[in-house]
């Protein structure tokens, strides 16, 4: 199958997958015991007000109608209204998502780069002290709770040393860069505001390092095991026997072939991160999707929860699609 038809069919196949996910989310929220509207109010409420509340949110309609309205709404980017103030959920998502995306991208880069470098290093020195130390480092970072590491780092760098800020995305005394993509580092560069760029980077460092360290354990481990296996493969030994340079064998031969499982893991982890690294965002008061959904849960805002979860579902589908396309771009055996 040609690359083109692979891409087309893979995209076509993503559509039923997303539909299935959306339907699943909708019905899970509906079949949960208790009336969402009633549950929203903690105290008794006037029946007339409750009926009005239901009507505004469309909860008075029969389930099939609700389902159709819900799907139709999603088609035009309507994720429903919040139970709290009837504001469109999509506005909240748009406001919050860039923060999550920015943190996800940088911490992922940090984790992947550090993980691969250490993993490769470890595999090349298999069964040495270096190897064992790196493995231990990977296990510790993987096992350490993210809020604990976050607090320790905050304590050291923000409280004792006072070299880095902590909490929120930007210095509260100043106006953040104008919104273009919503990612402060990008927007500040696009507007040529170097000062704002430096500020946003400083605010990013602690949450990025925290999340990145916790994540890099997986990548160290995965890179190391796959590299060890690949370095023993016939084609690597054959390349050594042809006198190719060490770096060529390590990267062009071993790492390229060991990379596919790593790519899968990047996709999976990235999807999880996009859904909001809840603990990290809470620890650093990061105004992303994670803190948003925690807040909505606390308010029993069912429609907002549904809207956010649906958004996650679409994100996961998109990320898996991208990973599959990257796979094809990467591996000639899929392409041809």
């Amino acid at each position: 199958m040609s690359l083109k038809s692979y891409v087309v069919t893979r995209i076509l196949l993503a559509i039923p997958m997303v539909l299935l996910l959306l339907t699943f989310v909708f019905f899970v929220i509906r079949v949960m015991p208790g009336d969402p509207a009633l549950l929203h109010f903690e105290r008794r409420v006037d029946p007339a007000a409750l009926a009005e509340f239901r009507r505004r949110l469309g909860l008075d309609q029969p389930i099939p109608i609700q389902y159709i309205t819900y799907l139709g709404g999603l088609f035009v980017g309507n994720f429903g209204l919040s139970m709290q103030d009837f504001s469109p959920i999509v506005d909240h998502l748009i406001a919050r998502f860039p923060a999550t995306l920015e943190l996800a991208i940088y911490s992922m880069l940090f984790a992947v780069i550090l993980g691969i470098i250490l993993g490769v290093f470890s595999s090349k020195r298999y069964d040495s002290t270096t190897d064992h130390s790196i493995r231990l480092f990977g296990i510790i970072t993987y096992a350490i709770p993210v809020f604990f590491l976050g607090m320790i780092l905050q304590l050291i760098f923000a409280v004792w040393l006072r070299v880095l800020p902590s909490g929120t995305r930007f210095d509260p005394h100043y106006v953040p860069p104008p919104r273009i993509t919503g990612l402060y580092t990008i927007d500040s560069l696009l507007t040529g505001n170097l000062w704002a760029f430096m500020v946003s980077v400083r605010y990013l460092i602690l949450p990025t390092v925290t999340l990145g360290l916790v994540l890099c354990g997986i990548f160290i481990r995965l890179t190391r095991t796959n590299m060890i296996e690949t370095l023993r493969k016939d084609f690597v030994v054959a390349a050594e026997a042809r006198g190719l340079s060490d770096s060529r064998i390590t990267y062009q031969y071993a790492l390229r072939n060991a990379f596919l499982p790593i790519l899968t893991m990047i996709g999976l982890q990235f999807a999880v991160l996009l859904a909001g690294a809840v603990l990290t965002e809470t620890t650093f008061s990061w105004p992303g999707l994670g803190t948003y959904i925690v807040d909505r849960i606390a308010h029993r805002d069912y429609t907002a929860i549904q809207g956010t979860v649906v958004f996650y579902a679409i994100l996961v589908a998109v990320v898996t699609l991208i990973v599959d396309l990257l796979y094809a771009a990467f591996d000639p055996r899929i392409r041809f």
Partner: peptide, 8 residues
């Protein structure tokens, strides 16, 4: 063949 191929 992959699921995709069989489909198309």
């Amino acid at each position: 063949k992959g699921f995709l191929d069989t489909l198309f």
